[in-house]
């Protein structure tokens, strides 16, 4: 599969503070890639470098086949969509006028506005003034703004932080729909459920270093303690190691109809993060 993004030996230094330390990763075309990390781990810095807003200190980045010297060109900018960490709307303008501005700046057809408003469930609110929107609505308009030109690649910096579960689901649906038509999505989050649900692959960023990179399922398997938790009909609870030697024991229990419930106890991504970095992912 082709890469949408290649990052090699990337480093970013602010004065004496090393924000990104020799990071390597690739993002495949069409995947949803999640960059997970606690506050201050360098997620926003990473997004800013990948979108040309900040310059790198060392290393190579290639996005959509273009190296970082091309990141300021309108060719590059029209192929990516960005939802920044603290972007806002023009609060005196309507939802529609906010989107119209960007639709025109990206030279996209104006019918995209109504299409995208339907996708984020805000068509009814299109003539509302932006200052009258709830936080969740405003965030959905900002997402719509990032997607208005149907970009090949979207960067979302904490798209759902501080939003209610309902809004979060709306946003997740819109992102899944977008991904189905082949859009590559790069998102940062410190929400573990979000990453588990949405991402094809996740990377852990801790103090500017990449710690793990794999699919959520593979990571949960890797960090599981490989045990079965079994509850028998008689009410007895057992923990059985998942090894060839114990296979017979399990088979026997099932054959004797003694098993009432059985489950594996894989850790959540949050627990894995804690294990890998020794730091809570908040």
């Amino acid at each position: 599969m082709k890469s949408a993004m290649e990052v090699k030996e990337l480093q970013k230094v602010f004065g004496k503070n090393i924000a990104i330390k020799h990071v390597d990763f690739n993002v495949k075309q069409g995947e949803i890639f999640g960059l997970l990390g606690p506050s201050g781990s360098g997620k926003t810095t990473m997004v800013k470098i990948l979108t040309g807003e900040l310059s790198k200190t060392a290393g190579d980045v290639n996005v959509l086949g273009m190296d970082s010297s091309k990141f300021k060109t309108s060719d590059f900018k029209s192929k990516v969509g960005i939802l920044s960490d603290n972007s806002t709307l023009y609060k005196r303008l309507s939802v529609y006028d906010n989107l119209k501005l960007f639709c025109k700046l990206y030279k996209a057809p104006l019918h995209h506005i109504d299409d995208i408003l339907h996708d984020v469930h805000l068509y009814e609110e299109r003539f509302k003034t932006a200052s009258d929107l709830s936080k969740g609505m405003a965030q959905r308009v900002l997402l719509a703004k990032a997607l208005i030109h149907k970009p090949d690649l979207v960067f979302l910096d904490e798209p759902t932080s501080a939003l209610d579960p309902g809004t979060m689901i709306h946003i997740h649906r819109a992102l899944q729909k977008l991904n189905e038509v082949g859009t590559t999505i790069f998102l940062t989050t410190h929400n573990m459920e979000e990453a588990t649900e949405l991402c094809d692959r996740v990377a852990f960023l801790h103090k500017g270093e990449l710690q793990e990179l794999d699919s959520p399922a593979a990571l949960r398997y890797k960090y599981s303690d490989h045990t079965f938790h079994v509850e028998t009909v008689a009410g007895e609870r057992m923990v059985i190691k998942n090894e060839p030697e114990t296979a017979d024991q399990v088979r026997q229990l099932i054959a004797n109809r003694q098993v009432k419930a059985m489950h594996t106890d894989n850790p959540t991504l949050g627990q894995i993060f804690l294990k890998v970095t020794g730091k809570e992912l908040v």
């Binding site: 309108s74 920044s84 972007s87 806002t88 960007f102 700046l105 990206y106 030279k107």
Partner: peptide
């Protein structure tokens, strides 16, 4: 102040 300039600069507008 409102961080909207960033959105404009991220767009293809010069």
């Amino acid at each position: 102040e409102k961080n909207t300039l960033r959105g404009l600069i991220q767009s293809p507008a010069s």
